[in-house]
Amino acid sequence: MEKKIEKQVPIIVTENVKKTYEDNGVEVQAVRGVDLTISAGEFTAIVGPSGSGKTTFLNIISGLDTITSGRVLLNGKPLSEIKGSELSDFRRDHIGFIFQAYNLIPVLTVEENVEYIMLLQGIPKAERHKRVMEILADVGLREYAQRLPAKLSGGQQQRVAVARAMVSNPDLILADEPTANLDSKTGSELLDMMKELNEKKGMTFLFSTHDEMIMSRARRVITLKDGIIAADVLKK
């Protein structure tokens, strides 16, 4: 599970990425030419006002949404070359997701939710169980393994989502407003945990957020405005 931080190794490269879509008959230019490189081990936040294109950009670099023009490379591989089920497999093996809320499958226990991706990967049960228990220990939820998500607090549910995102050791974890539905104390604890995991395991985190707490913890803050990068600040 331990991963050596390989700084300067690009995980994501976007080249003049543009995305236009129609919303109720109106053409919306959500992303208007973004050039960006995210390297391994980064803890980066993409910030910006509502409608600035943050979520769309995250969707694009994860292959959840298509681009109108430009190029996206994940680990050097152009996403446009991956289609259909291969794209599902690619996301499964290379990207971890944390959404704002309702991340988990409500009828599965914590353990089953976390092991889901490994199950899709065909990892044997014993190995799955071992890795689930390890990651649940990392997020402090080992004793909650058999609970259903509804029996957990919002913060605990997000921790489970973090565990699920990390358990298959992906190249990149994308978190879309992960603290939006949490109170500030719970959100702060969650971010501290993610930061610790980033430092300990060297996983690359990319956030889309409005949250000051995330911005303050991120080493790099990219500001999107009207679909273009308005600022890209690397903290010392």
Partner: peptide
């Protein structure tokens, strides 16, 4: 979400 985390359409 299931699709995002890697579930195939099938």
């Amino acid at each position: 979400i299931m699709r995002a985390v890697g579930t195939r359409p099938a």
